[in-house]
Simulated assay, not measured.
Amino acid sequence: MAGDAEATRRRLLHAAMEEFSARGLAGARVDRIAAAAGSNKAQIYHYFGSKDALFAAVFDGIVERTTSTVPMDVEDLPGYAGRLFDSYVEHPEVQRIAAWHRLEQSGGDDTALAASRLRSIEESNRAKVEAIASAQADGRLPTHWSPQELLGLVLQIAAVWHSSVPEFDDLVTGSTHEHRRQVVVDAVRRLLNR
Rank of each mutant, 00 (worst) to 15 (best):
E18P: 09
E19C: 12
E19T: 11
F20K: 00
F20L: 01
S21Y: 07
A22Y: 02
R23C: 12
R23H: 15
R23E: 14
G24Q: 14
G24P: 13
G24V: 15
L25G: 06
L25E: 13
L25N: 07
A26N: 12
G27H: 12
G27P: 04
A28C: 02
A28M: 05
A28K: 00
V30G: 04
V30W: 02
D31F: 03
D31Q: 12
R32H: 02
R32M: 11
I33C: 08
A34E: 08
A35M: 12
A35F: 10
A36P: 01
A36G: 04
A36C: 02
A36T: 12
A36Q: 00
G38V: 06
G38I: 01
G38Q: 03
G38A: 05
S39F: 01
S39C: 07
N40F: 05
N40Y: 10
N40V: 08
K41N: 11
K41F: 02
K41P: 05
A42W: 05
Q43N: 10
Y45I: 00
Y45C: 03
Y45F: 11
Y47R: 00
F48H: 05
F48K: 03
F48R: 04
S50R: 09
S50C: 08
S50Y: 03
K51E: 00
A53K: 13
A53W: 08
A53R: 15
L54Q: 07
L54P: 03
L54K: 05
F55I: 05
F55E: 10
F55S: 04
F55N: 07
A56C: 06
A57F: 06
A57C: 00
A57Y: 04
A57K: 01
A57W: 02
A57E: 09
V58Q: 13
V58W: 06
V58I: 06
F59C: 11
F59R: 06
F59G: 04
D60Q: 10
D60F: 06
G61Y: 03
I62G: 02
V63L: 08
V63Q: 03
E64P: 01
E64L: 10
E64H: 11
R65K: 12
R65H: 15
R65A: 14
R65N: 15
R65F: 15
T66Y: 14
T67Q: 15
